[in-house]
Design a protein around this nucleic acid. Sequence first.
RNA 1: GCCCUUGUGUCGGAACCGGUAUACGAGUCGCACUUAAAAUGCGAUGCCCGUAAGGGAUUGAGGGUUCGAGUCCCUCCAAGGGCACCA
Length: 848
Amino acid sequence: MATQYNPQDIEEKWQERWESLGIHRAVDGDSRPKFYSLVMFPYPSGDLHMGHMRVYTISDVISRHRRMLGYNVLNPMGWDSFGLPAENAALSRKLHPEIWTNQNIKFMRDEQLRKLGTSFDWTREVTTSSPDYYRWTQWIFLRLYNAGLAYRKQAPVNWCPQCQTVLANEQVENGACWRHPEIQVVQRQMDQWFLKITAFADPLLDDLETLTGWPERVKVMQRNWIGRSEGAELHFTVESKPNVRIAVFTTRPDTAFGVTYLVLAPENPLVAELTTPECREKVEQYLEQASRRSELERMMSAEKTKTGVPTGSHAINPFNGEIVPIWVADYVLMSYGTGAVMGVPAHDERDFQFARQFGLPVRQVISPDGKPAAELAQAYVEPGIMVGSGSFDGLASETARAKMTAWAEENQAGRKRVQYRLRDWLISRQRYWGCPIPLIHCQKCGTVPVPESQLPVPLPVEGIEITGEGGSPLTRCAEWINTKCPGCGGDARRESDTMDTFIDSSWYFLRYCDAGNEQSAFSRDKTSYWMPVDQYVGGIEHAILHLLYARFLTKALKQLDLVSCNEPFANLLSQGMVTKYSPGSGRIEKMSKSRGNVVGTNDFFKRYGADSARLFTLFAAPPEQELEWSEEGAIGQYRFVSRVWRLVSDLVERGLMNPQAECPEASDLDASSRELLKLVHKTIKAVTHDLSPESYSFNTAIARCMELVNGLYKYVAEKAGDQKAAVAPAEGELISFAVRSLLLVMAPMAPHITEELWHLSGCAAGAADSIHLARWPLYVEALTIDDEIELVLQVNGKIVSKVAAPRGLAGAAAEELALNDARIQGKINGQSVRKVVVVPDKLVNVVV
RNA sequence: GCCCUUGUGUCGGAACCGGUAUACGAGUCGCACUUAAAAUGCGAUGCCCGUAAGGGAUUGAGGGUUCGAGUCCCUCCAAGGGCACCA
């Protein structure tokens, strides 16, 4: 036999067999321990490349390994299929988004993900753009709406001129749209829908502590994004208008005696009210100029100079009754705190810079030693001793913080306040290919929710013309937008905005638990059984976006008593990106179509097979690190699987495989056989450890498999190198055991070739059996330990000699062994031995 | 500017608690097989000095702790990422 390894002959065959046997199906409510393995579902853009395959490979290895460990594994897949590319494709190819999307899904599912050898349970496939999914997205929206967690307000929002829609704060990066960094977003006042994510700011922050299975850097990013700061809101009364109060937020109420001015954000409505006639012209000019500068420009100019103009009005400091001028400046943001700050130049770098710019006084109220410094060269931001602060003088500034806040509360001049950087989630989008917001606007009744029984509000497919201009096509679809009010029955209009697609992906993991349910979004029983996700794998780019939204929605659904879990993802693995040399730039860059450095999947599968592709992506780098695609490296893996193939098929041909036999006892074997037996047990131990969640070290797992293959080749050459030579029965049994174990530990990583060889070598119980139904092999700890070890002998920490020694040699005996060693004695050369350090079974260090 | 991560042969990368640095693979070289080549099998392969035996330095740089540091501590350099007028 010894046939050539030809992946094309075996891979599709097994993919079909696994599917028909249904071996990847998850069983609801099974008594085995459950394991929910999830990979971030893709947007069906049409064609995956090898860079995309990394995440599916990692997640698949984890899923397959868990099945072999005896878990009831849920490993589902679906499509995040609403989104802008479908509309753009419709525009450029004259293809309806739905048709384009469904074509892509079919190709990606059948020609790409299946051919990679993934073990998804396709009976639970979800497609977010399908009415039986978005119906429940709408239902969830209505539940949030009825609970007061969804609301509409007018606010300055981020508008992307390219996407022709608004964006959430999380979707703006460096002042540009996250989808195209070259397009600046612009601020617009608009009436928009928001979800009250800020109501969950504290749980979202605090529960990060419970996510011990998350990478620290993701948690840090979320912590920063939520940006909780504790401080006080202080109230300053306007001198000329005693009924107008300016509230400022500060984290440093202890510096309140150092206030020498107030600043309002240009967008603050108080500006118009407080600007005096003499200052009007300059202020209006300034506001005009500030409104023209984008957020990005405002940020970029941060380090250089500050701008601002006085309003002409003054405010009274509640602590000392002082009158300070009120300015307008764009270093104050309307969207954070109260849109007004107190200026304390002595103790805040930005205020110091501003004061210097405009010649405002600097007053020190905290000093390191309790004595005022002559003049400050820069702001003193550290804690210190209070000075020039009336009755608070002499206190430590940290103590004064609480005391002064309490004083403000007693005197109606302020209160304690916690401020977050996190804003509410803007979810309305002026786009067509998204989930319609299930609300109706009625002249008489106002905003009326669509009754749950009438869901879904369908996204019209017929009669839609996508032009890319003039707003959402939904507003031009008369038969859709005109409707009757569910309250009064009168004429009404549908809400034409659709939802941010991040809502679709904020609950898909719940739908997988109960994908076929036509009565509800998911049953509580099933989500309680499967949730939380035990291992989530996905890209770091969602560290804030998707992962924060999904956490929020889970908490909101828990509050509405629809699910019982508090956090959706117990463990998170953020895989690194795949890079490759890009001829365009001459640099190593992220693999992507636009950079022209992609490696196609089907091309590679045809030539080398999916197993080689999987092994290479696992082997070339640890999962969290960047991986550079290398043709040579990938072919190296093809060589490795071919080597395994030749080894096993040759043994089978020569009748040396006897898989039903028991593994012989170590005592019945000669030295080299015992060595192989130990190598097998060491390999099982190492791979078991490498595939555990503590490691997920697939690269070293494969290295261990390679070592076993090398050991087997060596052993077979020694014992059966001569084709005619008889192999002792115990040695044949040992070889069979070694091969069996090798196939088992490799099975999660290279599922096709191991399955084929499992059957070929007679390990399978029958045609309907599968290596992927087999149990993960166990190792015997005693057989992973060597009896004889190499003892390292050092003098003053330098290696001088190495000697063989029995395992467990006592300290005194080891010391004697070392001191009698000729080379050690040569090094000591008569000097007095000060000390001897013995590390049992490792080394002896002689100190002279 | 602040915070985080990473720096190991020609390359991708190993190294558990501080205890033989460079596992495994790629590349290169050699041998076997072959008429030949490919493929395959076997072997060698970090650097400097040396014909060799052998010796020396070595984990971004410098210092420290320790019998012993790639690993721990401090300073610095470089790359990557995050945050960035958030009061």
